[in-house]
Design a protein around this nucleic acid. Structure first.
Lengths: 339, 339
DNA sequence: CTGTTAGCGCTTTCAT
DNA sequence: ATGAAAGCGCTAACAG
C-alpha cells in the first residue's frame, strides 16, 4: 500500500499532452511514434515515477500472467530449492517468472495455495504434491493452464509428472551393498503414507528378492520423518539383537540422522554397518557417505519443459518423465560385511 | 494459455439467472444473499469450473496484490532459501504470498526483476542486493510499496534493512581463536567488491588489532567466490612459507572449500590449522566444524515484519535491524596453536 | 504518426 | 435481497 499515489498511464499521457494510446505505444516500445513525442513521454513518465501496472496490462491483453507457480512442500529443503532453481533457469528463456509457495506438507494448505495461484492466472502450475486427493484439479487438467507434478504423481488425476527413478536408485544401492558382501540389509524410511517412502520400500523388498534375500520386518523401520527420528530409529535398530550389516536410508534427512547415530556408535567403540543413502548431501564427500544421487535441478528443468510444451500444445497426452540416479561410492557403502 | 475457456463471473451469473453483483457477493461470501440463491450460484460455479480472476479483482479494488516479492541472489543457496522460508512463514498471518525471483548475482537482472515485481504491484518488496547502485529505487522508497533490503544495505538509497551482525560475529571468531592460543590467523574471503566480504574483512583486521595483532597481507586471501576457488586459495596459503596457525573463512561456500583443503592436507600427513567458519553448515556437527552461526530464517522474519510495519505506517523512518550471531564450538576451532 | 472507442473481469457505489 | 452503471489501468481495433 504505502503512499499509494502511483501515476497511471492516463496521467502520463495528460502531462505529456498526448493520447492514452500514444503513451501506451511509447511504454511498450511499439513503432509509429515520432522520436520527439517518444522522448517527451518517456521523460514525463520518469519524472512522475510511472510504473505500468502489469496486472492491468495482462487483463486487457486477455491472456495469463507470465508467471509459473510452484507449490513446494518446503522451500528450505535443499531438494525443493534445487528444483526451484533448475525450473527458474529453464524458464528464463521464455520470459516467465517463478512464483513459489510452501505448503509445509499440509494438504489443506497445498490446495489453498494451488487455487490461489490458479486465481492469479499463472501461465503454468507445478506442484510437489503432499495431499492424497487431487481431484479438485481435474477440471484444470482439461481446461486450465499446464499442470505438472514433481517428485510424485497426484492421486486421482492424470497429468504431466516428473519423478526420480526410485526403483532404479534403490536397486543400485542394494546391488552395491550385495556386491560388497552384504546379505543382511536394513531400510530406514519415512511414513508409509508418503508415496515416495512407499515406492522406495517396495523397490527395496523387490531388489532384495532378486538376490534371493528376504528382509525380516524388524530390519525395516519407517516413520523417520525428520533427522532426529531417524537417528533414534537407527540407534534402536542397531542395538536390537541380530542387526543388519548394512543400511539403506531412504532420503537426505534420514541419512543425516543415521550418520549421527553411526557417529555416536563409533565414538562409543561399537561397530558400524555399511550405509548407502538415497539423495545426495552437501559435504557428503568429506563425510565419506555413499549415496544414490541424481540431478535435482534436472527435475525442475524437466518440469519447466513439460509445462512449456503443453502450453504450446494443450492436446498432448499426459507424460511421465523419469530422472536417472547414479550411485556415488565414497566409503560408507563399501565396508565389507562382518559376516 | 491452454484451452483458455475459463468462464467469467458474468457467465456464472447468467447461467444462474442472477446479476453479476449477486454472483460476486456469493463468491466473496458477502452477506445479503438468500441462501437458496447462494447455493444455486455456488453449484453453477462449480459445474462451470469457475475460478475468479484475482488480478482483475485487485485491479477493481484499486489496491495492490497480496504478494510480497523477494529478489534473491541464488535460491539454491541454503542461506537465501532459509531467508525465504522465514519470510514466508512470517507472512502467512497477513495473508500474503511470497513470490521469489533469482538475480543470479547479476545487477542488471536484479534491476529487471525488481521492476517487474513493482509492475506486478506487489504489496512489498524484499531485495538481497547484488548491484552497486540502487538509485533507480529512490522514487519507490518515497512513493512505492515497502522496500526492505536484506544481507546488506543498498547503495544510494536509505531504506529498511536487515543485516547480520558481521562485526560481532567476526569478533567472536577472532576472540575464540585468540583464547585458544592463536596469534597468527588468516582470513579467506570473497571478492572485495562485495559488501559482506568487505565488512567481514574490515571487522577481522579491527578485531585482530584489538588484540594487538597485525595481520600480514599474505594471510588475507580474497576472491574465493565458490568452494573450488576457496579450496585452492586455502591450499596455497598453507603451502606458502610461514602460514598462519588458524583460519577464518568468511562464508559457507568458503568454509566448505577450506574443509576440503584441510581434509586433503590431513590425508597427506600435513598438519592442519584451526578453523572457524562464518555461517553454519549442514552436518557441521558431524564434521566438527566450529562456526559463527545465526538464525537465517530470522533475517526473513525481520524483513517481513519491517515490511508489514511500514505498510501500516509509511511515514516510519528507515530502520536497520541486526541479527545476532553466536559462536558454536565443535572442534575445528579449538585446536591449540602449534606455536 | 496519432487518437477514439471498446472492452478485459471484477468491485464498487447507489438504487430499487 | 438484488441489480444497473461506472470504472480500476491498460491494450486492441479501428479510424483519421
Amino acid at each position: 500500500m504505502a503512499t499509494d499515489h502511483r501515476p497511471t498511464l492516463a496521467a502520463v499521457a495528460r502531462a505529456a499532452g498526448v493520447s492514452l494510446k500514444t503513451a501506451s505505444r511509447v511504454m511498450n516500445d511499439e513503432p509509429h511514434v515520432a522520436p520527439r513525442t517518444r522522448d517527451r513521454v518517456r521523460s514525463v513518465a520518469r519524472d512522475l515515477g510511472f510504473r505500468r501496472n502489469a496486472a492491468a496490462a495482462d487483463l486487457a491483453r486477455g491472456g495469463s500472467a507470465p508467471l509459473v507457480g510452484f507449490v513446494t512442500a518446503d522451500i528450505a529443503n535443499h531438494f525443493y530449492a534445487s528444483i526451484a532453481d533448475g525450473m527458474e533457469r529453464a524458464l528464463r528463456g521464455s520470459g516467465h517468472q517463478l512464483i513459489t509457495a510452501s505448503s509445509d506438507e499440509d494438504p489443506a494448505r497445498e490446495r489453498r495455495l494451488t487455487e490461489a495461484l490458479l486465481e492469479r492466472r499463472v501461465a503454468a502450475l507445478v506442484v510437489a504434491p503432499t495431499g492424497d486427493d487431487h481431484r479438485y484439479l481435474a477440471h484444470e487438467v482439461r481446461h486450465g493452464p499446464p499442470l505438472v507434478l514433481v517428485d510424485r504423481p497426484a492421486a486421482g488425476i492424470d497429468a504431466d509428472t516428473v519423478v526420480i527413478d526410485n526403483d532404479g536408485g534403490v536397486r543400485q544401492a542394494v546391488d552395491h551393498l550385495v556386491a560388497h558382501g552384504h546379505r543382511q540389509i536394513g531400510l530406514v524410511t519415512d511414513h508409509g503414507h508418503l508415496w515416495t517412502a512407499r515406492e522406495r520400500r517396495l523397490a527395496f523388498v523387490r531388489a532384495m528378492a532378486e538376490h534371493d534375500l528376504l528382509v525380516p520386518d524388524r530390519w525395516i523401520r519407517d516413520g523417520a520423518h525428520d533427522a532426529a527420528a531417524a537417528q533414534r530409529l537407527v540407534t534402536e535398530l542397531l542395538e536390537a539383537p541380530a542387526p543388519p550389516t548394512a543400511l539403506l536410508t531412504s532420503n537426505n534427512r534420514i541419512t543425516a540422522g543415521a550418520l549421527r547415530a553411526l557417529h555416536a556408535r563409533r565414538a562409543a567403540g561399537g561397530d558400524v554397518p555399511a550405509l548407502v543413502g538415497f539423495d545426495d548431501l552437501e559435504l557428503a564427500d568429506l563425510l565419506g557417505v555413499t549415496v544414490v544421487a541424481y540431478d535435482m535441478a534436472e527435475i525442475g528443468r524437466q518440469a519447466a519443459s513439460l509445462a512449456l510444451e503443453r502450453a504450446a500444445d494443450p492436446t498432448l497426452p499426459p507424460r511421465l518423465r523419469t530422472v536417472a540416479t547414479r550411485l556415488v561410492a565414497r566409503g560408507s557403502g563399501e565396508h565389507r560385511s562382518r559376516a
